[in-house]
Structure formats: structure tokens, C-alpha cells
Nucleic acid binder design. Structure first.
Lengths: 232, 232
DNA sequence: GGGTGCGTTTTTGTATACAATGGGGAGGGT
DNA sequence: ACCCTCCCCATTGTATACAAAAACGCACCC
């Protein structure tokens, strides 16, 4: 693996995980020394992060990790809605043409049905990643897939800012299942509407979680107060 | 201006104008010598072009200018529709909130009405550029604006592949005017529909022009046969 | 005669040295 | 005492030298 790739991956992980917080200054010498690469591949890595929008040149002499607030998240979701509703329609149209893809989404629907997101969130996120990959493959549209990739890159950081609660994850699984079913059936309108609903709920939950984190009267109210059926 | 910026701009211009045709190989030493910069800034420029999607690494050892065919154009327009319809709705919503923006789009509508695209195509394209800029400004959504910027970067090359004919330009001006009017009135549904219509017509025209160029029985039939009222 | 393996050569990837620019701090002047 | 200016230093931008890797060709062996 190239040094520039390692540097990019390392910085990407740290930004997405919050180790490098918004506003953190990325000096070339400092970061290159820390990551064990020279300045040349580090600059390439930072250039890619700038293209992704995760890092911005605050002054011609200082690159910092991009800030992200509630308005940014709303803006990001506006773009996400545009892209994913379109993607849903296109994928559904594709399924109607090539029935082979229908089985893929039917299988994903079953996996969403079986998922226990409140017990195994990581496994659930893996299913979502597979769903996204299946969607990209069904699209046959590199431009749209690239735009979706950028959005998802930002979403990782948003998800971390606003920790999902178990209720939301369970609802999210149900919503995803409906989208997958609609795609398997080739119903573009339903897939788009279900996507709209899902993104609305996801955004609402994230913004609520964010407002909660900013003025934490009780430490994460729902998680403690709501009696979610643990095992079953 | 930085050497890497100059290299990027030079390569971008050459790719968009067709001087560097799709499939052209971009060797680092060759290009850096030709553009009069060293390999370091040239690599940065190529990295940016890769991020834009104008250049792709065919093999780990060979970067080439991205190919673009009719299917790519259809895919690009699918993304463009998703983005611009969304942008139209968002901009209209913005106009309803802040009436100041209404004047901007009203002024643009007048400029589209006055434009004589068949006589001064460059001036007309300048109005379109201003319209795009006004749209971006009204959005207040950097993510969407960035996605639109990428699409427009590709569109420059598409426009060159398929030379617009005078009729199409005149129709395009009328369509743009309707979009601007709808935005000025804050009518998001109309703006989105008008955008849909405009993009459908633009895509149809481009694909026709492309098919025409591939099997050129007569050199650009319409341009010669249709008597377009020149002055007036 | 064909295939395989090694050597050469060209290309990219990385490191480092050098140049230039901008900012910050200190000192002096008003 | 406050502000302005100038100089030094830190940081980025560029060039070049070096290393590594892959492709090509050639020769030798099967």
C-alpha cells in the first residue's frame, strides 16, 4: 500500500471517528512526522480530504478539519435526499429491466428483517453498507455513485456526533426493509417515498440527539427511561 | 498563482476543450515538461482532476483522460436532474423567506429574455454562468453546490462534444427564463418542473447531435436547412 | 517453435533540499 | 501607552534526487 494511501486512510479514520475534531489544525510537518510519512504523500492525502470536503484551507497557510453544525447536517441531508430518492427510482427501474437484481434486494430485505440493531449495531451497519453497495451496483451510474460516496463519507462523522438510540435503530431497520422490498418489486415511487420517510426520520433523530447533547439536562434521557426489551 | 494551480487550470482547459481527447495518456514527466512545472505540482493537479472524475487511473501506471459516451451523458444528466430539481426547490423556498433574492432572479429572467443566443452565444453562456452562481448563492448549501460544481465541470466537455444549434439555444433561453421566473415567484414546483423539462430537452438535443456527428450524412443538417430569422 | 525467467528500462512513488511567502513578535517612535 | 514597522522564523510550495515496482524484451531452455 502506498504511503499516501495510508496517510489518507489514517486521517480519514481519525476525522470520521472524532479523534481529529472539527477545527483541528493539520500542519504538514507535524502530521507527516506523526504518521511516519514524508510531506509529499501527506500533501496528497490532505488534497484528497479537501476534495472530500472533510478538510478546508482556512487561510492560505492553515488547513483545518471542517466544522459541522446542525445547519450543515440539514444541508447534507437535503443533498442526500436528492441523491438517494433519485437512486431509488433508478435502481427500481433497473430491477424492472433485469430481474436478477430483484433477488439481491429481496435478500437484503430478509437481512434487515433478521437484524437486531439494538443488540448488534455493528452487524446492522454492515448490512447497511451492503445495501449501499447493492444500490450503487444497480444504478449503473458512476456519477451518482460518486456523489453518494461523498455524502456517505460525511455521514460517518454525523452518525458519530449523534449517537443513535436503540429505538431509532430498530425503526431504521424497518424503514430500510421497506425500501429494499420496494426495490425488489421494482416500485420506484414507493422506494423513493420510503427513502424520503427514512431520511426525514433519520434527520429528525439526529437533530434531536444533537440538541440533547448540547443541553444535557439528563445524560441521554431515552436510553435510560425507555424500557427496551433486551433479549427476546 | 501556484504552479499546481496553473497546471490544473491548463489541463482542465485542455480536457474541457478537447485538446486532450478522451483516452489521452498523461505521463508525469511528459506533462510536467510541457507545462513547465516540476512533477510535484503536476501530480497535485492530476490528483484534483482524478477527484473531478475527468481523469482516471487506467492501470496503476497509466492515467488517461476519462472516456465519455452517450450512456455517460445520460448518467450525468440523471445526476444533474436530481441535483438541479432539488436546487430549484430549495432556491424557491429561500426566495419565499428572503425576498431580496427574488430581484436577482427577476433580473436574470430579463437577461434571458434579452439574450440573443443565436447571435452572441458567448454572452448567453455568460448569463447562464451568472444564473448558476445566483442559484448556488441562494441555496445556502455547500454540499449541493459542490456536487453541482462537479456536474458543471463535466458538462463543459459534453457541450463541446455536442455543438448546440441556434434553435436549441433560443429554446434553452426561453426555458431558463421560465425557471428564473418561477424562482423569482418562489414557486418551487414550477421551478422544478421547468428544470425537468429543460434538462429533458437539453439531453435530447445533445444525444441527437451526438448521433448526428457519428453518422454525418449531411454536415449538420438543421443548421443549414432551417431558416432562422437572423437579426430582428 | 514456444514459453518462461531474468535483466533492463521506464515509470511512478517517496524523501529531502531549497525557495518564497506570510505571520508574529519585538523594538522604537509618536 | 499604543501603534506602526521591520525583521526573523515557521510553514508552505517547488524542484530534484533517489528508490521501488512493473512492463518490455531478449535469451535460453524445454
Amino acid at each position: 500500500m502506498r504511503a499516501s494511501d495510508r496517510a489518507y486512510q489514517a486521517l480519514l479514520d481519525e476525522i470520521q471517528s472524532g479523534v481529529l475534531a472539527p477545527g483541528a489544525v493539520l500542519g504538514e510537518v507535524e502530521q507527516s512526522a506523526r504518521l511516519g510519512v514524508s510531506r509529499t504523500p501527506l500533501r496528497e492525502a490532505i488534497g484528497r480530504l479537501v476534495a472530500d470536503g472533510l478538510v478546508v484551507q482556512a487561510s492560505p497557510r492553515m488547513t483545518v478539519v471542517t466544522h459541522i453544525d446542525a445547519d450543515d447536517i440539514r444541508a447534507l441531508f437535503a443533498l442526500r435526499r436528492a441523491l438517494e430518492e433519485s437512486a431509488a427510482r433508478l435502481a427500481a427501474a433497473r430491477v424492472r429491466q433485469a430481474a436478477a437484481d430483484a433477488a439481491v434486494f429481496a435478500a437484503l430485505s430478509a437481512r434487515f428483517a433478521d437484524a437486531r440493531p439494538e443488540r448488534e449495531p455493528d452487524a446492522y451497519y454492515a448490512v447497511i453498507a451492503d445495501f449501499d453497495a447493492a444500490l450503487d451496483a444497480a444504478l449503473h451510474n458512476d456519477y451518482l455513485a460518486a456523489a453518494l460516496r461523498t455524502v456517505r463519507t460525511h455521514l460517518v462523522r454525523v452518525r458519530r456526533l449523534a449517537r443513535d438510540n436503540p429505538q431509532r435503530l430498530a425503526a431504521s431497520a424497518a424503514e430500510h426493509r421497506l425500501i429494499a422490498d420496494a426495490l425488489a418489486a421494482g416500485d420506484g415511487d414507493l422506494a423513493a417515498s420510503a427513502t424520503h420517510v427514512h431520511l426525514h426520520n433519520a434527520l429528525t433523530s439526529i437533530l434531536a440527539s444533537l440538541a440533547d447533547a448540547e443541553s444535557p439536562r439528563a445524560p441521554s434521557p431515552e436510553a435510560a427511561s425507555v424500557p427496551h426489551r433486551g433479549a427476546a
